[in-house]
Design a protein around this nucleic acid. Sequence first.
DNA 1: ACAAAAGTGTTTACTTTACACCCATGA
DNA 2: TCATGGGTGTAAAGTAAACACTTTTGT
Lengths: 232, 232
Amino acid sequence: MFTYKYPHPSVTTDCVLFGFDGRELNILLIERGFDPFKGSWALPGGFLNMDETAEQGAKRELMEETSVTDVFLEQFHTFTDVDRDPRERVITIAFYALVRKSDFKVIAGDDAARAEWFKIHELPPLAFDHQEVIKMAQERLQEKIAMKPIAFRLLDEKFKMSELQRLYEVINEKSYERRNFAKKMIATGLLADRGPNTVPEQNRAATLYSFREDVYLSKCESHQWKKYPFDF
Amino acid sequence: MFTYKYPHPSVTTDCVLFGFDGRELNILLIERGFDPFKGSWALPGGFLNMDETAEQGAKRELMEETSVTDVFLEQFHTFTDVDRDPRERVITIAFYALVRKSDFKVIAGDDAARAEWFKIHELPPLAFDHQEVIKMAQERLQEKIAMKPIAFRLLDEKFKMSELQRLYEVINEKSYERRNFAKKMIATGLLADRGPNTVPEQNRAATLYSFREDVYLSKCESHQWKKYPFDF
DNA sequence: ACAAAAGTGTTTACTTTACACCCATGA
DNA sequence: TCATGGGTGTAAAGTAAACACTTTTGT
């Protein structure tokens, strides 16, 4: 037991894990096995340990509940409504995270709970204030995608221009003209041409690209980027 | 006394209060009257009560320590390093806030501690990780000023174009060409011409402007703003 | 008279947008 | 052969950047 002179809230982390299936933005949810909200879907997350930072905690929970490692993960807001948890005062430090769905093999963590991807516009009823958390995560993702080349973390190492475009479209909830998008994207200098797609498809083989992180980092060092280099 | 099955961190709020003197960005700091860091300067803030949200807590602390009310205040990050407080595990939810220095009469709160403005580039040694907190606050202010017309909250109701320009310059740490800045700013349609400055100065009287919040709000409703309308 | 800030427009370069036809592939 | 997605360039419009001289006022 732990005793304090003043009451302390509980502190949790929650993580909005985004995935992209080439068509839609997806979010990974966990089916809750306990009350409150037993049977509802919720964001992966849990209580913060005393010897870990929030980021470490969020990564640990993600690993425990979904076996996901090596994700891009960034804090975006702390939710502190007094009654957001019916049991006791709980504040949650919320993160969003980005994974390549192909890097993401094993799901269903060790605590028997089901983990499932949902399209961002077809979410089931959610526990706590997780609806609001997800909404804010997407807003933050929109802001961040204009500043940093994080979109590539949602795509496979090699990707088609049309996939990249579709990703920007679903994140920013607007559509782009095909030729102009490609032109501007290529003009960043960050795409390496990896030749035509060798996987046969129903139509003409598309050029594959990959993200040139080396170029990005060297341009960062020489401060060559404007404030919103990816504001498409 | 309050007892829990598992250990809980303490939760505080801290607030980076920005002011603008017409020339430099300033930050309000409190001289600490107690250990740890007795005699050092620190951000206004303190423990979160169980019946208040983080935002309410931050506003209360600001009021208690500096008698400031009615500020623009926004959460930007939660700092969770395990050893950031030498006494015990404390996480802090950090806010930045903007005040007009003319609206800001009474300082020096009820707990005898001194409160003082410091130029952002001439800060004294700071308690805890407050150096880092301030750095991040400024980064966040830079991002936000490009998205929302919050700069006006740092200026008096009526202001000169050169003051507005100087403010953008100190926040964004770059300089602008006088005519282009004014042209672009006026083109937003958000400035009302309030006539020439009647306070005599050492030189020609400048036109005063004020911010037209009504115009801004109506343009928001009709979605007429691009993503970064104030990215100067 | 001079120092300091304020007022004022135009030209050029760059960026963004709109737009249409042909190609390769598998069903 | 048809449906689907992929490849490609140019012209027009709009936005951003560079640039200098005159005015007002107080010292």
